[in-house]
Design a protein around this nucleic acid. Structure first.
Lengths: 210, 210, 210, 210
DNA sequence: GATGAATGAGGGTTCATTCAT
DNA sequence: GATGAATGAACCCTCATTCAT
């Protein structure tokens, strides 16, 4: 069983390639026009495939969106497990690393796209939000929570920090994704700088006084 | 000239009531079904009005959405100016106040709705995003930026803080709105607690060590 | 009973004026936009009257069109009887006169308008065409036919002319009305010249050789 | 390049048949109900095709009308060139032939239909009237004008005839088309007889006295 | 009588989905 | 399996007509 409980028939190599082409095209068109306004015909043309072919790989337009979103999430899902392993170094360094990863992910174009579609399709696609919540959000929060506790235990962090909801730290850069969607025409963000400032700010507050 | 450069014919009392009914109904249906899936017929039924009547007050479904969004933004637009006036007390207190307001606004149901529609309709309604950026975002950032500078000048904040982008602080609670949209079914947030923790965290970092 | 079997309630002076305003406005808008595309609202505005008022004077949009057409026909209906009386002079002169009148009528702006609406509304308004046929066409043809017979009897016209259908003569200038409708943008007709040439042509052919 | 500058994708045999079916059905329904009142649904049913299929072949209802009209005009457009070639015989014979053709065309059911739609749709379809004017009217008038001049040169026609506008001759039978539209219910015309009488009349007038 | 806001049936058009080839 | 022509349900918007004021 894969990370998502999705039934998948075995596909030949060329079929898998075709499926990927379609997903790629769909992502592009969904990003360009938004899910509702996107036309299956445009996706087919972009994928250089006949309209009917889309339906050989995906039952409905909705299913196609789900697959697109899942595909976008997959790498994140897979990476979630690995971070914990690298538990070397100080809690401060680990936390920096973790928040940096989270911040960068939020600021990525993929996240803007993902967020946009999860929000647009919200009503019809609760399961995807659920999946993301279960596999990414929960897990991410747990990891950061563990780091906080470890830092407190080791005396690196102030004792009160143990009770801080990790969401305060992890969620803080969601705004970069939203900004990308809404305001990138007006002003581009200097993500690097913002993330640096944010880490600096947060850490200074977390650290126990010497 | 009002806060938005919208041409408005004078309406009788009963017409204004009706217009409000329609806006209310539209907000409800848009929230329930999403803009694209929302049917004018449903909005009419919800407003207890005939389908044609909608078009006496709003030219198109798009215009109705714009009006809904503008109506949602208005109070925020109007409040923006007032905060600055209350510049009494320490910079720390002022900043707390400002960030608290921003955080609460982000966590409100209206913001979730607003965000959702601005994101969904993004392609067709650049002007609304622009308006929000110009009138709310810019202005909010400036106010907080001023407070930061004032705190540095007064010695309350560390000198480096003068160069921190206020967005890092102000944007930090956007995630609450996004959470509301996507994950409120799975877990409700304790906004009060999160905001408190966040303020505590941020301020400890900002304050100069004695 | 008037020339058309139309039920008419007695109207006050101001009511008659209002009715005329509406008819005038309707004619204008029908001409400008065509019957189907014409909006009752536009007619009301043009007549400086409320939309509802139109329905106090005319039951439906169709009825309004019928009244407009009838109003346009009336003068013609009334003049038809008078021409015959002026039967002085030679048959040749009388025929010239009659054909000139017919030709001028066909070339008038009113006829272009009338023709256009009778054709456009054909399906729904058989009665108007019938009225026009009965009162104008038939009668006109009879008058010209009588003149032809008289000219033959007096030896002015060739004997064969007695069997010529007057329609050949009378209908010959219908094209001017059609031209006005379709081609007036491309080239204006010199009606005077065309009618002169036509009369000359026809008469030379009708006259017995001495 | 065809007679009309219409972009046409190559269609398969069955597609051409289908296109023709639709045109046929549209002509029928347009004739029956008039363009404005005609419903796309009725046309689809008549063509034994789904409503959506209409839009595979014609972009809009307007475009369908244009195609119907163009289809009706085509044969005429194509024949216009050929008549001139048959310049054998006397000018009198040639003129007879030309006017006979024109008169018959005017009296055809297709012309009644064509005229009706060109008049009804006048406002929106200036280009079609322009096309008809450029390709049919102009050209027809030129041919007849040439014949007149030739007849004068050869001494068959009176010298004054050289200055007669050919429109007087060619337009003379437009009334038959109008009659068909408006009065065919009341009285059918004996076209043959009318055309004969008309030619006889006109020629007697044109011919120089021996 | 006059008004014009309200009504709601109606129709053109779109586009996800199907299916014969 | 792949195609793309065909389908028809769905929906926005218009506008003739009504009716409460």
């Amino acid at each position: 069983m894969g990370p998502a409980d999705i039934e998948t028939k075995p596909l030949s190599r060329s079929q898998r390639r075709r499926r990927d082409d379609i997903l790629q095209a769909a992502l592009e068109i969904f990003d360009r026009d938004g899910f509702e306004a996107a036309k299956m015909e445009d996706i087919a043309r972009e994928a250089e495939v006949a309209k009917g072919t889309l339906y050989l790989y995906f039952d409905t337009k909705n299913a196609l969106l789900e697959a697109v979103i899942l595909t976008a999430i997959m790498p994140t899902l897979q990476k979630m497990g690995q971070v914990a392993a690298e538990s070397t170094g100080t809690a401060r360094d680990l936390l920096s690393q973790q928040l940096l990863i989270a911040a960068k992910r939020m600021a990525s174009p993929e996240m803007a796209s993902l967020l946009r579609h999860m929000i647009s399709a919200r009503t019809q696609h609760k399961d995807i939000a659920k999946l993301y919540y279960d596999k990414v959000v929960q897990s991410g929060l747990e990891h950061v929570g563990a780091t906080l506790k470890r830092g407190v235990a080791s005396g690196e962090f102030r004792p009160e920090i143990a009770h801080v909801d990790p969401l305060v730290l992890v969620g803080a850069h969601v705004y970069t994704a939203v900004w990308k969607i809404l305001f990138s025409d007006m002003q581009e963000l200097d993500i690097e700088k913002l993330v640096d400032e944010y880490l600096e700010l947060v850490l200074r507050g977390l650290l126990a006084r010497p």
